[in-house]
Structure formats: structure tokens, C-alpha cells
């Protein structure tokens, strides 16, 4: 038990302390940070870092962009992967193995190799600098996991339940909504959360497709600004905090079911 406590203590220091540190420094003045001490006098604290960041960046706009894009990615990936996984799980499709393997194998494609051709595709579809362009492209990051996860879930639901619903006169949509989804709900939570977080964190795809304030996301702005704000660490910390906090809030709500669902689903493969 002592060993366990030591491990808990060490891992808390390692995993949580860096975040506490930047949160703490985001309220400190430049001078206070430059003293190179951990604790500083009360006058070393300020809200100015946040005020400055909010005044130089169009923060509300980028926040809205991020939320819009991530929500759309979440919803579309949910719809596509629920139907897709249901199809893979319930129907005797020819080449099913190839489809599953094909989709999973995209996880090994190097993104850097696809970057320039991906731009050409998005450009020829006239989707550059559009929310839809980013959403559709980000789907490739999340779909393989979502399909795989949900298929695992659906496989565990006895097929008799579907049949019973069908006999009661329900069509496919009704079967899904009344029978399958409630049972697979933990899995759906995981998939939704995963999609949201991956989309929120994405840097590479947004950096290619976004060209203006219409589509720039918070993560993109953060990584860009933090390289030009160097040394003004207070502001950098404020910016990082602002980017992190939304996912943390979401995580706080989803956390418990997430951990259950994530692992339960993974085991079913």
C-alpha cells in the first residue's frame, strides 16, 4: 500500500504539476516570472495576461470556430459510424474483412505524406477555408476508431432483440433508436468524446485548410501565437490555459462513463 501511495504521488507530480504550473504562471506578471522563483509577492499577480490575449486575438471567434467544427465532427462521425458499424455488425457483407482491414489500415498512413495531395483534393472540391472542408477531413482521423469501437459494441447485442423489434413492425431507424442505441450508449459516449477531443486538438489538418478567421481554430491560433510570443511567458500560459480548459470541462463531465466505455469496448474486439 505504501508503494501504491508513492506511485500515486509521483504520477500526480509528473502528470498534473505541469498543468498546475502553467495555470499558476498565467496569473503572474512578466517580472514575477523572471525572478526565477516559484513563489512571488502578491503584487506579482495579475489578470493582464488574459486581458492582453483576449484583446489581441479574436478569441470568441476562434472559440466558436473550434466548438462548431468539433461538434460537427462529433455528430457526423456518430451518424456515419453508427450506421456503418451496424451494417458491418448485422449484415453479411461480401468483403467485410477487407473493408474492416482497409479502414483500420488508414491508421498507419503517414499524414505528412498525404498533406499536399489532401490539399489538392480539398481544393478541387472547393472546400478550402470552409468549415465543411475541415470537418470532412477531420473525419478520417476519427472514423476508424469509431467504427471499430461501435462494431465491437453492436456485436455483443443479441440479434434476437433486432428481430423482436422488426416483428413489432419497426423499421431500421426505429430498431437503432429503440433497441441498439440505448444498450450501446456507453460506447457511443466514448466515440462522441473521442471525436470531439481529436477534432479539438487537431493541428496539422487545420493548418493546411484554414486560411482566414472563418475557420481558424483555437488550437491552431495557440500553436502559432505561442511561437511568436516567446519569453512573454505569462501570455503564453494564459493562451495555453484557455485552449486546455474547454476540453477539461468536457472531460470532467464525461470522465466516468468514458473510462468504463472505452475499456469495455476495446475488450470486445
Amino acid at each position: 500500500m505504501i508503494v501504491a501511495y508513492i506511485i500515486i504521488f509521483v504520477s500526480l507530480c509528473f502528470f498534473i504539476l505541469p498543468m498546475v504550473w502553467i495555470f499558476y504562471c498565467s496569473f503572474r506578471t512578466q517580472e514575477s516570472i523572471f525572478t526565477g522563483k516559484i513563489i512571488s509577492a502578491l503584487k506579482g499577480f495579475t489578470f493582464n495576461n488574459y486581458i492582453k490575449i483576449l484583446s489581441v486575438t479574436d478569441f470568441p471567434r476562434y472559440f466558436v470556430n473550434s466548438v462548431t467544427i468539433s461538434s460537427l465532427v462529433t455528430m457526423i462521425s456518430l451518424i456515419i459510424s453508427i450506421f456503418g458499424a451496424y451494417g458491418l455488425s448485422r449484415y453479411d457483407i461480401k468483403g467485410k474483412k477487407i473493408i474492416i482491414f482497409g479502414i483500420f489500415s488508414t491508421q498507419m498512413f503517414p499524414q505528412v505524406l498525404m498533406l499536399i495531395p489532401l490539399f489538392l483534393v480539398v481544393f478541387s472540391l472547393n472546400l478550402m477555408d470552409k468549415v465543411l472542408g475541415i470537418v470532412l477531413t477531420q473525419l478520417i482521423l476519427v472514423l476508424p476508431f469509431c467504427l471499430w469501437m461501435l462494431k465491437g459494441y453492436f456485436d455483443t447485442i443479441p440479434i434476437d432483440l433486432d428481430d423482436a423489434a422488426e416483428i413489432d413492425g419497426g423499421n431500421l431507424i426505429q430498431q437503432l433508436i429503440y433497441v441498439i442505441l440505448p444498450i450501446a450508449q456507453p460506447g457511443i459516449m466514448v466515440v462522441a468524446f473521442y471525436s470531439f477531443v481529436v477534432s479539438w486538438s487537431d493541428y496539422l489538418i487545420v493548418s493546411v485548410i484554414s486560411q482566414s478567421q472563418n475557420t481558424a481554430t483555437l488550437t491552431l491560433i495557440m500553436s502559432r501565437l505561442s511561437s511568436s510570443l516567446l519569453i512573454r511567458w505569462g501570455q503564453v500560459c494564459a493562451l495555453a490555459t484557455l485552449t486546455i480548459v474547454p476540453t477539461l470541462i468536457l472531460f470532467a463531465f464525461a470522465q466516468k462513463r468514458l473510462i468504463e466505455g472505452l475499456t469495455a469496448g476495446a475488450l470486445k474486439e
Binding site: 500515486i8 504520477s11 500526480l12 502528470f15 498534473i16 505541469p18 498543468m19 504550473w21 502553467i22 504562471c25 477531443v197 479539438w200 486538438s201 493541428y203 488550437t219 495557440m222 500553436s223 505561442s226 511567458w233 503564453v236 500560459c237 493562451l239 495555453a240 485552449t243 486546455i244 476540453t247 477539461l248 472531460f251 470532467a252 470522465q255 466516468k256 468514458l258 473510462i259
Partner: peptide, 22 residues
């Protein structure tokens, strides 16, 4: 502890890098 520990996995990579650079 269980609910705190996953936090580092959730935040954007770009933010992680910034934190560690600092």
C-alpha cells in the same frame, strides 16, 4: 486519482509542447 490522471491525454498536443517548452 483515477479521474485526474487522464487529463494529460485529453489536452491538445500543441498545448503539451508549449507547456514543456516553458
Amino acid at each position: 486519482f483515477k479521474s485526474l490522471i487522464m487529463v494529460s491525454w485529453v489536452i491538445p498536443v500543441a498545448a503539451t509542447v508549449t507547456i514543456f517548452k516553458f
